[in-house]
Write a protein that binds this DNA or RNA. Structure first.
Length: 436
RNA sequence: GGCCCCGUCGUCCAGAGGCCUAGGACGCUGGGUUUUCAACCCAGAAACGCCGGUUCGAAUCCGGUCGGGGCUGCCA
C-alpha cells in the first residue's frame, strides 16, 4: 500500500493541502502503508524553490514524515516533475503513435473514447460512474512540450506504484481522464478517495481571498503544532465518542478514509484558537518557558537579557494559564522587559482617586520595609493595607496594577509585582503618586 | 448552461430504522469564582432544508424538489 501527496510549489503550503496530507499520512501510518511526497511543478512559470522549501518545512513542522520522495530520496530520482519532462513527452508521443492521442495546434490531446462508462470506487463516496461523452478531449502535452497536470500526475502515480490516490474533491471530475490514461498505459487502476474541501467562512473553497491561509501564517500567529494537528483531524473526521482532544497515536489508531465525511467543512479559527489554548496550558512549564522566550525574542527582534529571563521565569506560569496563542505572550509581559515603559493615561485617570493615592503612598513605604520580598509577603502586605485604610480591593489593587504594569489588563497583580522586583515596583509607584 | 459532489444547532463533530421530547464541542447569552483580563465551574438559546414514498416506526432507506459547492484551461 502506497499513498502520496503531490503539492504544487506555486504558493506556500496552505491549510487545505496540509489537511489532505494529514489524512493521507494518517491512513498510511494506520495501515502500515508507505507515504510519498512528490512535487508537482509542471507549471514552471509559477513554481519556485522557495515554495518547495516552505512545503517541506511546514509538513515536517506538523510532524508528518514520509518514506519516499522529495527531501528524503528514493529510487525514482528527485521526485520533481520538472525532472521528468522527457518521460512525459515520450509517453505522449507513444499515445500519438498508437492513435490514442493526436496533435492539435502544436499540443497533444488525448482522444476520449465515445459512449463508454468509467467506473471506480471512491472510499468516501462509494461507487462512481462517469460517461465519457461528458469528457472532452484534453491536452496532455502543451505546445511548449511541457506536460499538463493530467499526464504528469497520472504517469507519476503509475511509475511510483501508488495504490491509493487520496486527494481533494476538486479533482473528482478529472478522475475519468486519469483512469483513461492509466488504461492506455495498461496500468493497474489504484483506489481513489476524494476528500472534502475546506471552506472559508463564506462557504467557498478556501483560497487567498480568505486572507493568509498558509500553514506558516498559523505558526507565525503562535499556533502549536499539536493543536493544529488535532484541530485539522476534526475537520471531516472524528475518532468517535465525542472525543475532541486527542493525540497522534489515537488518531492513527482510529483513522479510516471510510468514515471521513463526504461534505466540505468550514475552517473555524476561533475553535482552533480555543484548542491552542488547551495545548498551551497542558505544556510542561519548562517547554512553555523555552518556547515563550523564543516568541518574545522574535517579536522584539533581540535577545533577552539575563535579568529579564529571571523576571519572566516568575511570571510565565501565570501567563500560561491565560493565553490562547503564543504571540499573546509579549504584550502580557511587556511591562517587565527592558523596554520603554509608559502608563496608559486614560486608564490611569479611570483608577486614580484620593483614596487610591493614599493606598499607593503607603504601599510604597511598606514595600520598602518588607524584609523578604516574597510573593506571600507582598500579598499579605497589600491585603492588610487595604484593611487598614478600609478600601475596596478594586480601588487599591487596580490603581496599583495600572501604576506598576501600565494597564488595567495584566497578569495577576502580586505575581506581577514580585516578578518586576522591589526596586522597579517602588519606582513606578513613586511615579504615580501625586500624578494627575 | 452542461457534468458531478454535498445537505443534522451560526460553525465542527456524534447519530449507521425504534436508545432522539436529537448528544458533545467552539462561539454566543446569563450566572458563579475573582484585584483586571483570562482560565475554570454552572445554566441557557440554538439544527435533522422542504415534499412525497417505504415501514408498525425515519435524522437515519428511496424519489423528487430546493439550496450550497466543485469542475467545465495548453492551472493544479
Amino acid at each position: 500500500m502506497k499513498l502520496r501527496i503531490a503539492p504544487s510549489p506555486t504558493g506556500q503550503l496552505h491549510i487545505g493541502n496540509v489537511r489532505t496530507a494529514l489524512f493521507n499520512w494518517l491512513y498510511a501510518r494506520s495501515n502500515g502503508g508507505s507515504f510519498l511526497v512528490r512535487i508537482d511543478d509542471t507549471d514552471t512559470e509559477r513554481s519556485t524553490d522557495e515554495f518547495k522549501a516552505d512545503i517541506v518545512n511546514n509538513l515536517k513542522w506538523l510532524g508528518l514524515d514520509w518514506d519516499e520522495g522529495v527531501d528524503v530520496g528514493g529510487s525514482q530520482g528527485d521526485y520533481k516533475q520538472s525532472s521528468r519532462f522527457n518521460r512525459y513527452q515520450e509517453i505522449a508521443h507513444e499515445f500519438v503513435e498508437s492513435g490514442l492521442a493526436y496533435e492539435d495546434d502544436g499540443a497533444i490531446r488525448f482522444k476520449v473514447p465515445k459512449s463508454q462508462q468509467i467506473q471506480f470506487n471512491d472510499y468516501v463516496r462509494g461507487e462512481m460512474v462517469f460517461e465519457t461523452d461528458s469528457v472532452e478531449d484534453f491536452v496532455i502535452l502543451r505546445s511548449d512540450k511541457s506536460p499538463t497536470y493530467h499526464l504528469a500526475s497520472t504517469l507519476d502515480d503509475v511509475d511510483y506504484g501508488i495504490t491509493i490516490i487520496a486527494r481533494g474533491e476538486d479533482i473528482l471530475p478529472s478522475t475519468p481522464k486519469h483512469i483513461l490514461i492509466m488504461q492506455a498505459l495498461d496500468a493497474n487502476i489504484p483506489d481513489f478517495c476524494h476528500l472534502p474541501l475546506l471552506f472559508g467562512p463564506d462557504g467557498k473553497k478556501l483560497s487567498k481571498r480568505h486572507g493568509d491561509t498558509s500553514v506558516q501564517s498559523f505558526r507565525d500567529k503562535g499556533i502549536l503544532k499539536d493543536a493544529m494537528f488535532n484541530y485539522l483531524c476534526l475537520l471531516g473526521w472524528s475518532p468517535g465518542e465525542d472525543l475532541e482532544k486527542f493525540d497522534r497515536d489515537l488518531a492513527i489508531e482510529r483513522f479510516d478514509f471510510k468514515n471521513v465525511l463526504p461534505h466540505s467543512a468550514i475552517f473555524d479559527d476561533k475553535k482552533l484558537m480555543w484548542m491552542n489554548g488547551l495545548y498551551i496550558r497542558e505544556k510542561e512549564s519548562n517547554d512553555f518557558e523555552t518556547e515563550s522566550i523564543s516568541y518574545i525574542q522574535n517579536t522584539l527582534s533581540r535577545d533577552l537579557f539575563d535579568d529579564e529571563l529571571l523576571r519572566l521565569n516568575k511570571i510565565l506560569p501565570s501567563v500560561q494559564e491565560r493565553i490562547e496563542s503564543m504571540v499573546d505572550i509579549t504584550e502580557q509581559v511587556m511591562f517587565l522587559l527592558d523596554e520603554p515603559f509608559e502608563v496608559n493615561s486614560e486608564e490611569w485617570i479611570s483608577v486614580n482617586s484620593e483614596e487610591a493615592q493614599q493606598y499607593l503612598f503607603e504601599l510604597r513605604n511598606e514595600l520598602i520595609a518588607i524584609e523578604d520580598f516574597t510573593l506571600s509577603n507582598i500579598e499579605e502586605t497589600m491585603r492588610s493595607l487595604l484593611k487598614k485604610l478600609d478600601l475596596k480591593p478594586k480601588v487599591g489593587f487596580q490603581a496599583t496594577r495600572v501604576s506598576v504594569t501600565g494597564t488595567k489588563i495584566s497578569p495577576p497583580l502580586f505575581e506581577s509585582i514580585y516578578a518586576l522586583g522591589r526596586e522597579t515596583s517602588i519606582a513606578r509607584l513613586a511615579e504615580s503618586i501625586e500624578k494627575l
